[in-house]
Design a protein around this nucleic acid. Structure first.
Lengths: 148, 148
DNA sequence: TTACAATATTTGTATATACAAATGTAAATT
DNA sequence: AATTTACATTTGTATATACAAATATTGTAA
């Protein structure tokens, strides 16, 4: 994926600008691929992420703030994201008894089931997206990512 | 930016999954910073990109397909993105005389003026975001990006 | 020359996101 | 105990995005 070819310019782009544009283009490719993989499940990337976080809780319920700090998305959406998962039967929400300001959100059996199916498709997408990388290169990439 | 710390897991994430998650987190940081920098101008990243493409045309008008193939966004939005730029007085649109299905879009003087102000802020954001990178590391990063 | 296909853009609609304000609850202060 | 402050979540609203369908124009073939 060559930046100049894609944005069709013959001008030399400064290194730092080029890096940011490159990142944007790659993100676009990646998120398109993932959205496509999740499409048959009728779920968005964000909803998928919330499901994964809930599973990661290993039965322990999560409240909205917890979800939010582990997510990419903004707080106000988290309520509605969870709404959608509940509507689909993949999550469950109860008001916390010890502190009624809080809510406790858990993943349902049905949620775990569909999530495991999604995992397979995600794994495929990851493989496809990263097919040109060796493990060493991915280690290098992650190492560089740490500098952001 | 360490993935495990951010998504607060103690489990080891497979290298390929980790890379994709890492990319998402970084994209989020970058786009937040850029949106913030553009905020005072009342313009979105996408609108900013269109303006830059128009400037890159060096006076030559661009049609929607051209804009679209150089952009990240989807076709149906391009019309409305341009609408917004026109409304702000930053772009101009006329129906192409040789082929009336096409439109010719150009950047206005006012557009060029505000764009040059935005460039300064963008440059600052890029510097801030990439402050931990040496030029060599950025070259390496761009090289790895080419494998996507 | 009429009909059909291809091209370029626009519009409709449903869903997603961002930001600010509102709600309800608990804790701290007077 | 009443008042204020802080916390956790929800709601309102404006804008953005995705996808499909519609519109308008041009090119092509019977």
């Amino acid at each position: 994926m060559n930046v100049e070819a894609i944005i069709k310019t013959d001008k030399k782009i400064p290194l730092r600008s080029r890096t940011i544009i490159h990142l944007m283009l790659i993100h676009n490719k990646v998120s398109e691929q993932i959205s496509h993989a999740l499409k048959p499940f009728g779920i968005s990337i964000q909803q998928f992420n919330v499901l994964r976080i809930l599973r990661g809780q290993q039965g322990k319920p999560a409240n909205l703030s917890t979800l939010n700090e582990r997510m990419v998305s903004k707080m106000s959406n988290t309520t509605r994201l969870v709404d959608k998962l509940i509507k689909k039967g993949y999550a469950h929400r109860i008001v916390c008894t010890s502190n009624r300001r809080k809510v406790e959100i858990t993943i349902t059996q049905e949620g775990l089931k569909v999530l495991s199916e999604m995992d397979i498709e995600m794994k495929k997408s990851e493989q496809e997206l990263l097919v040109n990388f060796t493990d060493l290169e991915l280690e290098q990439l992650n190492h560089l990512f740490n500098k952001f």
